[in-house]
Design a protein around this nucleic acid. Structure first.
Lengths: 347, 347
DNA sequence: CACAGTAATCGAACCGGTTCGATGACCAAG
DNA sequence: CTTGGTCATCGAACCGGTTCGATTACTGTG
């Protein structure tokens, strides 16, 4: 493998001149620059990443800390990851994917050894043990997901509160007065997944304000449990006319449940989900939904991170907590409820 | 951040002594070793990864080149990735996840700059443009998936031929004489996904040998197209009594299709799938299936890679092409066909 | 024609580790 | 009391880049 010394010799100049010719950080005569570039080309010169990192204190690598929980839906995770890796690459960075069970220890190892220039954290918990370590690290950090304490990092998330309100508002305006909200499984909450109750509590609050009855329940993450739960819910609240779904598995299971019960959507039941367009397409879900934009969130986190990495001024800017406002994508799965606000009892 | 120089000063020894005390590569007095370890502890010393890489020509990072195709099922991909990252970590390596569209160029960049000690390739095509680059690289490489030319790399894959034969054999032995095989979509094949026709051709050959009629068809990767296709197939071949599924999306869609048609599995139709246990669990698929063991394949690839990275002898061993033999996991979705080998025509 | 000023290039130091050969202290043997 | 041999430690070089200050050659000016 050719080094910059080889290139310099081939071009008949010193190592420093070769370096300047390649980086353009000092004026170099046209003639010499040509020779250096030709030599680099001829020798297929590629700078040694370790050496460059040592000299510049920059690795051009970002860390992405993510967990693949079996009870969270895989396709959603993939999109976050894709958003991060694609954007990182666009900006000239590679991505170190860290899935260690002990995220805090892994994070310390990664940052202390200076393998990366910045860190993106996913699967954020309300009280995330990785955050103190990230704050103490010399590299900047960003999260996808809202932790309890946002100090010292840049935070990006969907506005789940607004999403909850928008779902309730939408159905309230159509005339619905009794709704069901199915959330993620309870252990997602126990693990610290604040977005579950952020959406739920905001939805409950808004329902209270506008006189709508809202039944909320933790869901399941797998078939057939989640299908059974949907049946139970529809049995338990026969007069509910709208269903809000903050749970990918439940959304994927709903079509066969309504089919089995002979329920028509939206005539018998209005439905609004909360997932990504990509997810909707993969399962061809026929429901209106609040777009959760995982790729966009991953992308935003990386952009901000790279800004801070590359500019000393940006590094001094105050930290941001940025929410994407939920966008309701209509698939025509909502309509005014049939009078007298009851679903036909089938099954 | 503390350097080894700081540790050495704190312990009152030279840098080299500190290095030897920490690595144990030369005998060091108990007294000095204690002082050095204490100093390292006190200063929270962590070696600089770039400097170490420069000195040792080892980065302790592996590259994983993978694409997230929207027409391939995401959960399967995640399991391969998890298998790779988990095993890598167990062996002391981090994983650089590379999802560039131009995999060949990305691979050259990664290997030439010596960012990684080894490379795992996924989404292998029959004639994969990354392979010549990997062969020319100075780092060892392994693939998950069987390319046309296996020279110069270690190859790991499910034995898809054996899987195809096993599926046919199993139903033939039960007395079935007419089967349907639904494969991945045609563009997976066009992209070079050889496993599709490896399974299919072997199944056809075996069917011919034992006098079974086997109808084969490329599938779709998404709802609702794949559901429609399943209906069409069952309409077109009313006397087929068994269904073989080498297509995750089709397997996931089948339960509602059989439900809609009033078909009972296995009484009216025997079914065998080919997917991972994890996938089966996520969708609670009630079918017997050939386990595709994605985590195991990823893990095997990494183990072999690390062996070659860490041992000069291992690096000289001949390259391996290793197939996992398919394991049929029974969920009771097969049974002898009802006489006279016809399904009830419902719908 | 000496002289300042500028532009291009060079040499050396540095980043933070590892590793090789040399050195010094100590002990036992001759 | 010298000599030989261990054992532990040190100093220097090296890995392959980048960067700073110095040097050289050339240009235009007084």
């Amino acid at each position: 493998m050719a080094t910059i010394g080889d290139v310099a010799r081939e071009a008949g100049v010193s190592r420093s001149t070769a370096s300047y010719a390649l980086s353009g950080k000092r004026p170099i005569s046209e003639e010499v620059r040509r020779r250096v570039l030709a030599a680099a080309e001829a020798l297929a010169y590629t700078p040694n990443a370790g050496a460059r990192a040592l000299a510049t204190s920059r690795t051009k690598v970002l860390a992405l800390l993510a967990r693949f929980y079996t009870d969270e839906f895989a396709p959603a995770m993939m999109q976050y990851i894709q958003g991060v890796t694609d954007t990182a690459r666009d900006l000239g960075y590679d991505t170190l994917l860290v899935t260690d069970e002990d995220g805090a220890r892994a994070l310390r190892r990664i940052t202390d050894s200076r393998m990366v220039d910045g860190v993106v954290l996913m699967n954020i918990a309300q009280d995330d043990p990785r955050l103190p370590i990230l704050r103490a690290a010399s590299q900047p950090g960003a999260t996808v997901g809202l932790p309890g304490d946002c100090s010292g990092i840049d935070v990006f998330d969907l506005d789940f509160e607004e999403a909850g309100r928008a779902m309730v508002d939408h159905l309230h305006r159509l005339g619905h007065r009794e709704l069901i909200l199915i959330s993620q499984p309870e252990h997602v909450v126990e693990r610290g997944g604040a977005y579950v109750w952020r959406l739920r509590d905001a939805a409950l609050e808004r329902a209270r304000q506008c006189g709508v009855t809202l039944h909320t329940v933790y869901g399941e993450s797998r078939q057939p449990a989640v299908g059974r739960l949907l049946h139970t819910l529809l049995d338990t609240y026969p007069s509910a006319t709208g269903l809000l779904i903050n749970n990918e598995a439940a959304a994927a299971a709903l079509p066969s449940v309504t089919h089995e019960r002979g329920l028509r959507v939206p005539e018998d039941l209005s439905v609004i989900g909360r997932y990504s367009a990509e997810f909707a397409a993969a399962f061809s879900l026929p429901y209106s939904f609040v777009e959760s934009a995982p790729d966009r969130l991953g992308s935003m986190a990386v952009r901000q991170l790279v800004r801070r990495v590359e500019s000393a001024e940006a590094r001094r800017e105050p930290f941001v907590v940025r929410f994407i406002s939920p966008e309701l994508v209509s698939h025509g799965s909502t309509t005014p409820p049939r009078e007298p606000h009851t679903r036909p009892r089938v099954r």
